[in-house]
Design a protein around this nucleic acid. Structure first.
Lengths: 228, 228, 228, 228
DNA sequence: AATGAATGAGAATTCATTCAT
DNA sequence: CATGAATGAATTCTCATTCAT
């Protein structure tokens, strides 16, 4: 089925940024570019389906349909359903980690830093597809040790370490009173994680103002801010 | 595993004494009692399997085997796999809620109350089958709105309400400084939830001293305790 | 697991020998008997299909259809296609070997013995389903070492040994001149094997009077018979 | 593996010299010669694969890989898998028949002739790829009537006729006693065929000295040779 | 001519559900 | 009531064949 789309060909012409262009416009693009597009479409579709149904209940057929490719095409990119799932998590998480790792230079107060961080998290994770991915990992982790390992190694342990660094800095600067907090950076991120899960599960029962909640939580840790 | 065999016993006799002597717990066990036992065995087995594999990947065959009944027997108690799952969550959660609802009379400080509560939670939920059930609900909730609804209604909303009550009491008594906390009781329970998830997913990567973490968190909310 | 076995119970009633009864006629037969019937039907059908198409080209669907069972039923009896094939060969060959092993008492001349044997072979193997099975083993042997091993162990090595015994007896009694023949019993059976293969492959090109050919071959070995 | 790349060379030039210098065998190799080479490589590879796995289990992908061509290239030479198989048998067998047909002039005794023949067969067929081809034909014959027909017509019937001629000559010259043998030349070749099959299937269980066996067999037919 | 990515029909296998015993 | 053999729809994965480059 000719699904050409030049997306990345001559990036000079028509900004190649809107990746979900409805396709079909440009007959030029080459094979490799197409393959990449297809792969991206598969990844996108698979993520969508896995999030919506979980690993076991997701049908490759549906992924293929959603990605606009034939079933067999999936197997040109992934060995089987399991490794597709495992690779998927990597593929989606790596760039997120990369972006977060490229932290802004630590200027200003620790609280400001953490607030910036939380703001980012709020915008990029809570209530987004990325947040659903976190829930998916929580859901499937026990059956996919490789995924849990990867997630722990790349995200959790790094995140914990970074938070611990910030907490210690906060303590050193006198912004944070409670010294024990450095032993459990989990406490710092717990409400954010809960917000992620809440949005996935209970948003429709009781919407949660995650931003406000995180502010309250930071007040708890740093002391209430004197309203400027 | 109960492999009774009254099957060929004269059904008239009905007395479950002689042939099925293998089980000794219930002296005058009659049909109804047996049925209840079976049902309980099925519930127990199903919970184990669902927790271990998730809904979709769980085989009724395995549940039957584990429960020591025939596959068909399951259908005498549950309409199908889906409703079995939904009922299961109810069946398992209701008594827990019942017990928690029968709160101890609120004597002593709020912190003591909450600590008692946390201690309970620690013992009864974190790192136990019950904790896994929470993870299971997080995992399957999106595909089982009925489950998410039920869980929200029976557990989450009540828990939040109860916590809010305690927080307000704490504020009124001057134990808790930060008044905004009453708006987000989630913050109070977040570390406990995180502990539940952590034990399921990352215990083997980095063990977590949940008890200590919860103490630190309470110190954060109530102020550090002057070490008696 | 209640595997009652009335199967062999009253063997007096209703002769249980016609296993391929078109089913449905006799409402009496019990579960176990039915299961055996089904199994036999599957074996029969599978043999038919494997012989006709070879292992790889045979569809389980067709076997099921021919056996009059559902696809899933096959898996109640055999682990998968491969082990079905391997077991099949055993199942079909064992009784044949058993019958041949129960040799008639070696009275009369060696030639008479071998002729009796050849007659049997002619009737029971050449040009029959059993002969086709031999061709099937030749065809699939290299891909099914287990089958080749089994066939060598149970049929070939025994057959060779038996033939060698007869040849040595014939030499001792002066019926066979050429002593070297005892080293290659294969020579004795070669024409019979060729006849088997010929019937499978070339019967329609040029029919072969296997009986006469075997007689000529025996004349070659024992000397021409003076027509009594 | 020939991975030439004239693909982008100016098709006008046609000279296979500069860009595709990788292969040195054929000084002025032009398109047609290359095509023939490829075809030969495909035939060779296909034969290997078909012999190793049988028709149905052989993947075109593997043939292509082994032949060092792309999958699509196979379709430039053969209509589809089936006709490839049928043509293959022809392609491989024809030259063998041609060589055998160009018999050495019948000088010397019939036994010498047949021995020469057997020696040839021993060297060129038994235990070689060619022998495996015979087994392949036995295996696939029933599913490929065209192959069986061809093989019967070109090889079997001719071989039988030739053998009959030799036998009759042997009878006429008094070398062979048993006149009936002329009716069943199959008897003459049976041990050779058995040797072919034995090497394919049972060589690892019990090696067979085919040469010695054939000698014994000829002794049986011609009388034991007085050891010169 | 040659390539190999893409296709999708087809085959093996699984498992929830039914029902005769 | 209980059983578990039987069913067949559904799902994953393979591979011959096509066709744009």
């Amino acid at each position: 089925m000719p699904k050409k789309s030049t997306k990345l060909a001559k990036p000079s012409a028509e900004g190649g940024d809107h990746p979900s262009a409805t396709r079909g416009e440009m007959p030029a693009s080459n094979r490799a570019a197409r393959a990449l597009e297809r792969r991206a479409a598969i990844v996108e579709a698979a993520m969508e389906e896995f999030i919506a149904r979980g690993f076991a209940a997701t049908r490759l057929d549906d992924i293929a349909k959603r990605a606009g490719v034939a079933k067999g095409t999936i197997y040109l990119h992934f060995k089987d359903k399991e490794s597709m799932f495992e690779e998927l998590v990597r593929i989606v998480i790596v760039p997120v980690v990369a972006r977060l790792t490229a932290l802004p230079p630590p200027t200003g107060s620790v609280r400001d830093l953490i607030e910036a961080f939380a703001g980012n998290f709020l915008k990029e994770v809570i209530g987004t597809r990325r947040g659903d991915l976190v829930r998916l990992i929580v859901a499937e982790g026990p059956r996919f040790p490789a995924v849990a390992d990867f997630y722990y190694r790349e995200v959790v342990s790094r995140g914990i370490a970074a938070m611990r660094g910030l907490i210690e800095l906060g303590i050193a600067r006198g912004e944070i009173r409670q010294k024990d907090l450095a032993r459990y950076p989990q406490i710092l991120v717990a409400p954010a994680m809960i917000a992620v899960i809440w949005q996935s599960l209970f948003a429709r029962h009781a919407p949660l103002d995650a931003q406000d909640m995180l502010r309250v939580h930071l007040d708890l840790i740093f002391g209430e801010r004197r309203t400027t």
